[in-house]
Design a protein around this nucleic acid. Structure first.
Lengths: 97, 97
DNA sequence: TTTCTATTTGGCAAAATTACCAAATAGTTT
DNA sequence: AAACTATTTGGTAATTTTGCCAAATAGAAA
């Protein structure tokens, strides 16, 4: 695998890694058409808020989601809708088993 | 997050995890329109053949790829072409940064 | 059968990921 | 300012993933 190609797949793998966690997939689903705060998401999932913050940070770093501060809340929304198409294919994969 | 939903995202996350490695993304690209043996893939990537075998096993377990034995080679090909659409979205994510 | 090639499996050490707690930060409200 | 709420950050232990080596397995060819 040559260097340029290797780098290309490394970058893509980072995107898949960012999505490869049930909580992060849930986040994407939850904020796909309404924005939610860290606290709201935390309550929906039922984990520690610091853990939720770190999951959001991973998605934010890749600009898959965006957060806007409003009062002392941060509301997140989905920035890359084509991510949702991934899901349909993922379902096909799951149904094959 | 209720139990049924949690399970749903757990299953999907497994699919993303299976794809979340540069070598495995390269494999998918390499065999998308021609089948290749473990040895051929190993030489293209430049890793230990046992490592390649394990990467293929991960994709095979999810039926993302299929292998057919021919002589003493095993030729792999892509079983779920919609995986390739993921890549185009992944590129959009990468270009946002 | 023996030898050779391709692939898989087991074991293990290194690296990465995850979740919690505690503490720090940011901003509101009193 | 002090008290309060939301979010982020640092630290750490537990778990998972990864990649190599060595050995086992499968089949082909001699």
């Amino acid at each position: 695998m040559n260097k340029a190609i290797e780098e290309q797949y490394l970058d893509k793998a980072e995107v898949f890694k960012a999505l490869a966690h049930p909580t992060r997939l849930f986040i994407i689903h939850a904020i796909k058409d309404k924005k939610l705060s860290v606290k709201e998401l935390t309550e929906l999932v039922g984990i520690d808020i610091s853990t939720m913050s770190k999951h959001l940070d991973i998605l934010k770093k890749h600009k898959i989601i965006l957060g806007e501060k409003e009062k002392n809340y941060v509301y997140y929304h989905l920035a890359i809708p084509c991510i949702l198409d991934f899901m349909n294919c993922a379902i096909k994969v799951i149904n094959k088993k």
